[in-house]
């Protein structure tokens, strides 16, 4: 890196009191500072000015965010009845408050409108939600940043069967693993990445890398915590 290209330190403003213009901050420093903000605070502050708003789209900002060691968790609540006006509730543990995200426009913007009528959330992990539409069709979605990504269609076994027994999603820093178990009991076991226990009509939600929670989306079956490791 050419050190000579680095910015000069902001000159102190003698008459304006002791305020410093963060606006004059190097973009790189601004991104690094904002990457430390809790999620809600970051999005609230997109209305500070245009520069702060556009930070959200920057690739280097996303990289900076991924280097922040830990954030307070968000807990997603999924609706048991799939319907058109699906909006997930989220518990933001930083602000200790419930928030209602508006997800439908997001899926529509991302051209999944056609499948919206039967799209249901099936797994959530690491701040991402996985939706299941047509058989074999999965969409991973970051409800906060608004990015959606249709995953490569799962194999033909999966497409023939509408019975999704269990699913888990494990995002890592560079990729996303989806584990799904479908078919009748374990006959058509379809899985890759990790093995998870099949329970009829259930979802398998990873709580963290070691704990999973299995329960039903359809019936009011008791939720069971699993600790496979």
């Amino acid at each position: 890196m050419d050190r000579g290209q680095k910015r000069k330190l902001p000159v102190k403003c003698e008459d304006e009191g002791a305020r410093f213009p963060l606006d004059e901050l190097d973009q790189d420093i601004l991104e690094r500072v904002l990457s430390w903000l809790p999620t809600s605070t970051f999005f609230r502050n997109t209305s500070v000015c245009k520069k702060w708003k556009f930070v959200a789209d920057s690739a280097t900002f996303k990289l900076a965010c991924s280097q922040v060691p830990a954030r307070d968790p968000w807990f997603f609540m999924v609706d048991t009845q799939p319907h058109l006006n699906y909006n997930p509730f989220v518990f933001d543990s930083t602000e200790k408050a419930w928030k209602k995200l508006n997800l439908l426009p997001l899926l529509q913007e991302n051209e999944y409108q056609a499948s919206c009528s039967y799209i249901i959330p099936v797994a959530a992990s690491g701040g991402l939600i996985c939706f299941h539409g047509a058989p074999g069709e999965f969409i991973a979605c970051n409800p906060v940043t608004g990015s959606c990504h249709q995953l490569a269609s799962l194999d033909s076994h999966m497409q023939k069967s509408n019975h999704l027994l269990a699913i888990a999603m494990i995002p890592t820093t560079s990729s996303l693993k989806i584990v799904s178990v479908s078919g009748e009991y374990c006959k058509n076991l379809w899985a890759y990445g990790l093995v998870c226990l099949p329970v009829i009509g259930s979802v398998c939600l990873p709580i963290n890398s070691f704990k999973y929670c299995i329960g039903s989306l359809v019936n009011e079956v008791q939720w069971v915590m699993l600790n496979p490791v």
Partner: peptide, 26 residues
Amino acid sequence: CRTLASLIKDRTIIEVRKMFNVENDF
């Protein structure tokens, strides 16, 4: 960076603009 972020955290948008001397260009 972490300390600057914590200064932003507890303030309203107007306070943040004032504090960091950022002009609202919206």
